[in-house]
């Protein structure tokens, strides 16, 4: 039996890694991947909580997180392709002007 605190601690570690990646990387692909890591950590916290109290609610919430992640990735990658088409780069530092 793994203590609940350790499971939450692992989720927090993963979330922190994702947050660090989101804040330090300037490549939009890597930022999206960091967001995925963070969402994944949050989903794991849901599942761990569901397992702690032996309720299925945690896994239902995991499904919702999965849905939100899929929708977010679809739209964000479309935006990424648009950005690459317009600016010829995926570096977010280049997005510093409102017009042209």
């Amino acid at each position: 039996m793994i203590p609940y605190e350790i499971q939450i601690l692992v989720a927090a570690f993963l979330f922190a890694i994702g947050l660090i990646g989101l804040l330090t990387r300037r490549n939009l692909i890597f930022m999206l991947m960091s967001v995925e890591i963070m969402m994944n950590a949050g989903a794991f916290a849901f599942v761990a909580s569901g397992a702690r109290w032996t309720q299925a609610d945690g896994q239902v919430m995991f499904l919702f997180v999965l849905t939100v992640a899929a929708a977010e990735v679809a739209v964000a990658l479309a935006l990424l392709i648009l950005m690459h088409k317009h600016f010829k780069t995926v570096d977010t530092n280049q997005l510093n002007s409102l017009k042209n």
Partner: peptide, 13 residues
């Protein structure tokens, strides 16, 4: 992460 979920008793997730 998937293996972690499996080991804490959530095979569906």
């Amino acid at each position: 992460v998937s293996m972690m979920m499996y080991t804490i008793g959530a095979p569906y997730a």
